[in-house]
Amino acid sequence: MTLCRVVIADDHPLFRDGVARTLEETGRYRVCGRAGSGREAVALVAAEAPDLVILDLSMPDGGLWALERIAGDAGPVVAMLTVSEDSEAVFAALEAGARGYLLKGVGAAELVAVLDGLMEGQSHVAPSLAAKVLTRMRAPRRAEADPLDSLTPREEEILRLVAGGLSNKEVARRLDLQERTVKHHMTQILQKLQLRNRTEAALAAQRRWGDG
């Protein structure tokens, strides 16, 4: 039987050694490296080419930092084993390539069962976090706000006329305003849209509203 070669990274030696002992007692895993920081983990993975990497989230250099440098199509299976129940941390880990996210309260038998599943191609998120993950996945993504929506009705009116090819003087005449008032509004418009000049503003307006 081919042994699964494992690198364990955790900054608590007693916990790290306990996990190593649990895995090696199964006869299916062999710990080929133990790291106390994210940087050490990355170096060990490069040197040992393990099949499985177990990362703590909050160790020096950070588990996420190491994960981003270890995970990949040709990389090892990565499981996070941490105390963090922050849903943002879960998503960051999963998006960075972790196949599993386990909490340190997990028992030895369950840990081995989950890791066996990961090595067979399954994914796993700690049951107490699964509801948070599903809620986040089902939440509709907020569309990015269009800066044009921040314009006042008067500013939109002026920009539409500018986009139609009118000069400040012509806009002022059309709206019965002072030319300097139109210039002031255009300055505000450019600031809100974070554009450099009226040409860019006119193009943005045309993309949104057509030719005027």
Rank of each mutant, 00 (worst) to 15 (best):
C4H: 11
C4I: 09
C4E: 10
V6Q: 00
V7K: 02
D10S: 09
D10R: 05
D10K: 01
P13T: 04
F15R: 00
R16W: 00
G18L: 01
G18T: 11
A20R: 02
R21E: 09
T22E: 09
L23N: 05
R30W: 00
V31T: 01
C32W: 00
G33I: 00
A41S: 14
A43H: 09
L44M: 11
A46T: 05
A49M: 05
A49Q: 08
V53I: 00
I54V: 07
L55N: 10
L57Q: 11
M59C: 10
D61M: 12
D61W: 09
D61L: 07
G62Q: 12
G63Q: 08
G63R: 11
I70E: 13
A71C: 08
A71K: 07
G72D: 14
G72V: 08
D73F: 00
D73A: 12
A74M: 15
G75L: 02
V77A: 13
V78E: 05
A79T: 08
M80H: 09
M80W: 01
L81I: 05
T82A: 08
D86I: 00
E88V: 03
E88D: 11
V90H: 03
A92S: 15
A93C: 14
L94V: 15
A96F: 03
A96D: 08
G97M: 06
G100Q: 12
Y101L: 04
Y101R: 04
Y101G: 10
G105M: 06
G107N: 15
A108N: 06
A109I: 02
E110L: 00
A113I: 03
A113C: 07
V114P: 10
L118P: 13
E120T: 07
E120G: 15
Q122L: 12
H124M: 14
V125M: 13
P127W: 01
P127S: 07
S128I: 01
L129M: 15
A130Y: 13
A130H: 12
A131Y: 02
K132S: 15
L134D: 15
L134K: 06
R136Q: 13
R141N: 10
E144K: 15
E144N: 08
D146A: 06
T152C: 05
P153G: 07
P153A: 07
P153R: 00
P153C: 03
E155F: 00
L159W: 12
R160P: 12
R160H: 06
L161H: 05
A163F: 01
A163M: 03
G164I: 01
G165V: 03
L166M: 11
S167F: 04
S167W: 02
N168R: 11
K169R: 14
K169D: 14
A172C: 13
D176W: 02
D176T: 09
Q178N: 15
E179Y: 08
E179H: 14
T181R: 06
T181N: 14
V182Y: 04
H184T: 14
H185W: 02
H185R: 03
M186V: 15
Q188R: 05
L193A: 15
L193N: 12
Q194Y: 03
R198E: 15
A202H: 04
A202L: 05
A202C: 10
L203Y: 02
L203V: 12
L203C: 10
Q206W: 01
Q206E: 09
R207L: 09
R208G: 06
G210K: 09
G212D: 07
